[in-house]
Design a protein around this nucleic acid. Structure first.
Length: 132
DNA sequence: GCCAACGTTGGC
DNA sequence: GCCAACGTTGGC
């Protein structure tokens, strides 16, 4: 299983709106992000990150349908996700940037990318940050 | 509100 | 095919 991070502006679509009904993760208009989405498998888990004013990881989503064309623009793709579980505490971008072993995160190195893979190690380190 | 990063567009 | 101009994203 692979791990991912999905970025969203909470004013447009917020983590709190995601429930058990499959939600198309649409609106991605970047080929690098699309290519990552096309690698997602059913039951992969993804952090959901709020950009803008919040700048923190809110919770975890689960992929329930692999990539298919975005009806609004078939050059791009969407996957369907559902709510998996919230984080006990959101993990802020500042906390990620302060962690010496997380400096290779694409969230930090490539701030405009909206869909990205998260290594298994990084996934565990980020989860550990929610407990401390 | 500003600006860096970076993707896209269009003239050549 | 190159590159300048421009638009968008997103952190600060």
């Amino acid at each position: 299983m692979n791990h991912w991070l999905l970025k969203t502006e909470p004013e447009t679509y917020a983590w709190q709106q995601l429930g058990s009904t499959p939600e198309p993760w649409n609106g991605v208009r970047n080929y690098q992000a699309r290519n990552f989405m096309q690698q997602m498998q059913v039951n992969d888990l993804a952090f959901v990150y709020h950009s803008g004013k919040e700048r923190q990881i809110m919770g975890i989503a689960r992929v329930v349908r692999t990539a298919y064309p975005d009806a609004e623009d078939t050059r791009f793709a969407v996957v369907d996700v559902v709510h998996e579980r919230p984080l006990p505490q959101p993990v802020t971008l500042a906390a990620l940037k302060a962690h010496p072993d997380l400096q290779d995160l694409l969230l930090i190195k490539q701030s405009r990318l909206s869909v990205m893979p998260i290594s298994a190690d990084a996934w565990q380190m980020i989860l550990a940050l929610t407990i401390s």
